[in-house]
Simulated scan of single mutants.
Amino acid sequence: MIIGIGTDILQMERLIAAYERTQGRLAERILGKEELVVFHQRLARNQKRGMAYLATRFAAKEAFSKAIGLGMRMPMTWRSLQTLNESSGKPVTYYSGALADFMLERNWHAEVTVSDEQDMAIAFVVVSHGTPIVTTHDPSNYIG
């Protein structure tokens, strides 16, 4: 059963400006531990791809917060949701802290997709009730 659907689209230029204005602290405020590692790796290889990663993760968090119906209020926090990639490249959600408890208590899970183009990033999330397709939500199982 579908609980909620969320989507978010953003202009990369605005996110890049905020990242530069905060001298990079924006990434540390938004990204979870494993996401931050991937971000720094991608940024070191190619600044454009690093910023696209930050933008898609920002969009995923916004879309997820809409899908669960809370917005950015507890238990939803920027770093309590991570969108990590399986080895196939499929993005998968990972929850921590109070958000993990919230999702488990309700038997909810989320499917997420993200995409980016030169100047835009988008995310789409569907939150459902029932057994998730992916049963393990251990961030060590995912790659950047």
Rank of each mutant, 00 (worst) to 15 (best):
I9T: 03
Q23A: 15
M51K: 11
M51W: 15
A121G: 13
K33N: 01
T77V: 01
N85G: 02
D101R: 03
N85C: 06
S96R: 13
M76N: 03
S88Y: 10
G6H: 05
A52F: 07
G50L: 03
F58V: 03
Y142D: 11
T22F: 12
V112S: 02
S128V: 02
F64A: 10
A63L: 01
W108V: 05
R21W: 05
L36G: 04
D116N: 14
G69K: 00
A27T: 02
M74C: 02
A27P: 04
T93N: 15
T83P: 03
P132R: 07
I30T: 00
G97S: 12
A60G: 08
A44Q: 12
T113M: 02
K48A: 14
A121Y: 14
P75V: 02
V127R: 11
D101S: 13
N141V: 08
Q82K: 07
R21K: 05
M74Y: 11
Y95H: 11
D101K: 14
R14Q: 03
E35Y: 04
F58H: 08
G89H: 10
G130M: 10
W108D: 04
R106C: 12
L36A: 01
T83D: 03
G71H: 06
F64Q: 12
R29W: 09
E20A: 07
Q118V: 02
V38I: 12
H40N: 12
M74W: 06
K90R: 15
G144C: 08
Y142L: 06
V92I: 13
R42I: 08
D116Q: 05
S115H: 05
T7E: 12
E111V: 01
Y142W: 07
M103A: 03
S96K: 13
Y53E: 11
R21G: 08
Q41D: 14
D138P: 07
L10E: 14
I5H: 08
E86S: 06
I30G: 00
E28N: 07
R25K: 13
M103E: 08
D138E: 12
T77L: 05
L31V: 05
M72N: 04
N85E: 02
N141F: 13
S140L: 10
I9P: 06
M76W: 00
E62V: 01
R49T: 09
E62L: 04
T93E: 15
V134Q: 09
W108T: 01
V134I: 11
Q41F: 06
R79E: 14
I16W: 12
M74I: 02
R25Y: 03
L99N: 04
N46E: 06
S88L: 00
E28Q: 04
V134E: 13
M74Q: 08
T77H: 08
F58P: 04
R79F: 06
L36F: 06
